[in-house]
């Protein structure tokens, strides 16, 4: 069993959990992910590792409550345990040799972008971070990004915090200000990553994206997480989750992501009902 040593709410729908998993903490690298099952009959859910502490033997995950499984996870408190927690899965992000990078996080994707920004800074790389949220209430990890970056741009859809606009507006501006990036790393909703890639293609800047498709085992066994990258079929779990964004077929990935939409809606409603009953 994997004990929750810390739980903290980051915004109304996003929370952080620090989980006791010493063996995983020892090996984890930014960009890799874990799979958890909250309870014995729960789904297996992949989540990218948000942080890890090798000495304390803990792994941090940040999750947004979007459906039945994350709702179930959120019912657990500090001191409770997750039934299953397996990793570190996938390949670590390749960060060696980079001198100047723009790290872009969208929404809860910031949870994954942050450890990469932190690692890059630790390696002496100049990091410019752009983070985007729908509104002020949803902003997460601002202080963390600030400490990992020499330049931080916060964007909100409604302008309630930072600058009104999209992450791509900020990126284009930074490029036009004369910043030359070795690489752009973009992590967030598929649609955001797609548009970042369209922009960086125009400027010919190599762009890495982190894909998080539907999967079961996370070890290459089910093939459910397959993507088309550069015309070839790749498994996000073992070949990724990081890929060259200019080669990823985002439209196909978006289509595949909706495979169980109907089921998920029902599951979410069922979970809500169950939780409401427990509260009453």
């Amino acid at each position: 069993m994997y004990r929750i040593v810390k739980k903290r709410s980051l915004n109304p729908t996003v929370s952080l959990m620090e989980i006791e998993a010493p063996l995983i903490a020892k090996k984890a690298e930014p960009g890799q992910f874990i799979i958890f099952r909250a309870k014995e009959d729960s789904e297996r859910v992949p989540l990218t590792i948000a942080d890890f502490d090798r000495e304390k033997g803990t792994v941090t995950i940040i999750y947004q409550i979007v459906g039945g499984s994350t709702m179930e996870l959120d019912t657990l408190s500090e001191g409770d345990s997750l039934h299953d927690f397996v990793g570190p899965l996938g390949r670590p992000s390749e960060v060696d040799g980079l001198k100047k990078v723009a790290v872009i996080g969208g929404g809860v994707g910031c949870a994954i972008a942050y450890p990469i920004a932190k690692k890059l800074k630790g390696l002496g790389c100049e990091v410019h971070s752009i983070v985007g949220f729908r509104n002020k209430e949803l902003v997460i990890l601002e202080d963390e990004f600030r400490s990992a970056s020499s330049e931080l741009r916060i964007m909100t859809d409604d302008g309630s915090y930072g600058t009104k606009g999209l992450v791509t507006n900020a990126l284009e501006q930074l490029i036009n200000e004369g910043n030359q990036y070795d690489e752009v790393i973009a992590i967030g909703p598929l649609i955001m990553m797609k548009f970042v890639c369209l922009l960086t293609k125009k400027y010919n800047i190599k762009t890495i994206v982190s894909m998080n498709p539907i999967m079961i085992d996370g070890t290459g066994m089910c093939g459910g997480c397959r993507l088309t990258v550069g015309g070839e079929t790749k498994f996000a779990c073992v070949d990724g989750p990081d890929f060259d964004g200019h080669l990823v077929d985002f439209d196909e990935a978006m289509h595949r992501g909706t495979m169980y939409k109907e089921f998920e809606t029902h599951a979410r409603e069922a979970s809500c009902e169950l939780l409401n009953k427990e509260v009453q």
């Binding site: 079961i216 085992d217 070890t219 290459g220 066994m221 089910c222 093939g223 459910g224 397959r226 088309t228 079929t233 196909e252 289509h255 595949r256 909706t258 495979m259």
Partner: peptide, 26 residues
């Protein structure tokens, strides 16, 4: 031998295409 082979024919990424591994594991 857990790695599923696909046929490499058009349409394998459509919704509703499973490897037997995925279908049976679910």
């Amino acid at each position: 031998a857990g790695l599923p082979r696909f046929m490499n024919i058009p349409g394998e990424s459509l919704k509703g295409v499973y490897s037997a591994n995925e279908y049976l594991t679910r």
